[in-house]
Design a binder for these strands. Structure first.
Lengths: 139, 139
DNA sequence: TCAATAGTTTAGAACAGTTATAAACAAGAA
DNA sequence: TTCTTGTTTATAACTGTTCTAAACTATTGA
């Protein structure tokens, strides 16, 4: 059975499953991140949102948590803008539209999108993953 | 006639052509950038290389120059790594391999590579450009 | 139930990369 | 030349992120 995304599922279990103690801060941030479907957040956005929700958590912890979640495969980092890291709650294979004016990311499902005709990677290296970023402008 | 890349061509003309005075610093940096075929440099790399070549130029000027060249279409910025900007002397349509361990970029020619099945961009926005980054790992 | 201990959080300092400031300087025009 | 305007520079400032070391807390096992 394929594990389906379950918004309010046992976040504590998920954390324990990847070897992270389910602390108050990690549970709160996990709830914010995973309760609302696919999201793209920066550390600052998540910190602000936590404050707004009345969750007391330091910016350092937000950074630690985002990095730990990413290392554990709960999040994925998206590089579209130098000088700002986006973290994506959708860790399955997919791509992005990026509106650099609104600094907004939108998912492009992997299904249906094909990248064909890639050359062989340089000697001694293999493809880790393919990121397609479709940069947008005003129509 | 299509303008072919001419390594030692009149850099001064190119600068004047985009409205930039051909100063000693811009000429030197332009020579370093455009004399050796397609390159991917960071500000720090270019600054170091200039020093090594005996060109006296401040880091601030390197940043200014990279940004001005990019705005003028002489360079293209590549976002593969947050917290570090790469500038590419190849401004034609193409894509990249990225070896994040060696922090090295390699061009993938646009010819032959096809991205198919893209969904329509969000309302009010159009595609500006498509960046494909093929991230590499040890084979 | 209660230490012991090992992992976590925190404020704040430190750091990396980049941009801003404002004074000195140099290119182009007259 | 001289004037004007654009450019360069050192340095300060700024942004996003990581580090540090002390305080704290989840878990373990007695």
């Amino acid at each position: 059975m394929i594990p389906i995304a379950r918004p309010f599922a046992r976040i504590a279990e998920r954390l324990r499953g990847v070897g992270l103690r389910p602390t108050r801060q990690r549970l709160s941030l996990g709830r914010i991140l995973f309760a609302k479907g696919d999201r793209h957040v920066t550390a600052e956005m998540l910190h602000d949102e936590a404050q707004a929700d009345g969750v007391r958590v330091s910016l350092a912890t937000v950074y630690n948590t985002l990095n730990q979640f990413t290392a554990a495969g709960l999040l994925r980092e998206v590089a579209v803008d130098t000088g700002r890291s986006y973290f994506d709650t959708n860790t399955s294979r997919h791509h992005h539209f990026y509106d650099h004016r609104g600094r907004e990311l939108t998912d492009i499902p992997a299904e249906g999108l094909r990248v064909q005709g890639l050359p062989r990677p340089p000697e001694g290296l293999a493809i880790d993953r393919i990121d397609v970023v479709v940069r947008l402008k005003k129509a």
